[in-house]
Amino acid sequence: MTAPLPLPESFALTFRGYDREQVDERIEELLGELRLLTADRDAAVAEAENLARRLEQARADNAALRARADRLCRTPADPAAVGDRVRHLLELAHAEAAGIVATARHRAAAIVREAEETALRRDADARARATGIVDDARRRAERLAAVERRTAARLREVDALLADAETLVAEETPLRAAA
């Protein structure tokens, strides 16, 4: 996350207030930064959604593989229909297959756990980044609004001073003519 841009303490004074071009440029800079922060937040949310979709796909794949393994294990060859030597080989093959299936299930469960943990971490990170970006943008917008309010108040003060000066000048002119 980028550090907030420093706001100037004041803008350059011109004849009737602040330099409007300078104020407009600063506002445009802040709006550009806000657009970038919004884009970063949207990208983080999209990444979290993508990871959630991938996790769901991994879960679906895991369920399909479990169903297939269960189906294969339920239809073994009948050892009674073959000779002793073949029966012994089939029993060994069944035992080895059961071990392989158990190992595969453990590995699949570990992969699913790891994918879920990674997705949760990334989702939390993306949400935290998005929240930070939004909070930062709000703070910047609030500072910009405060600068705008101060600028408007100062412009009103300058306008009042100018009006007073114009009144004084207008009142002073007849006095000079009479003297």
Rank of each mutant, 00 (worst) to 15 (best):
A102W: 03
A69G: 11
L120C: 11
C73L: 14
R149M: 12
V134F: 07
E28Y: 08
L65A: 10
L55E: 06
R176S: 05
Q57S: 10
L37P: 01
A124N: 07
A137R: 03
V101W: 00
A81S: 03
V112L: 15
A177P: 02
R139Q: 13
R149G: 06
L92F: 00
A97L: 12
L34M: 11
R74V: 06
A160T: 12
L65M: 15
D123A: 08
A130I: 07
A95Q: 05
R156G: 10
R113A: 15
R87M: 02
R53A: 09
A152T: 03
D164G: 02
A46D: 03
A80R: 10
R85W: 01
A170M: 04
E166N: 05
V101D: 05
R16A: 13
G17H: 06
T151A: 12
A126T: 01
A46F: 03
L90G: 06
A12P: 15
R59Q: 15
P4I: 13
A39T: 08
P79L: 00
R154T: 04
A97V: 06
A119T: 05
R139K: 11
D123E: 11
V82Q: 04
R129G: 06
A39I: 00
V112I: 15
L161I: 10
A43V: 09
R122D: 10
E172G: 14
D123V: 05
S10V: 01
D78G: 06
A137Y: 04
P79M: 02
T2D: 14
R122T: 15
L37H: 04
L37N: 10
R129W: 07
D19E: 08
E29F: 13
A119H: 05
V147L: 12
D135S: 09
L92K: 02
T75R: 03
N50K: 13
R53I: 00
T103F: 07
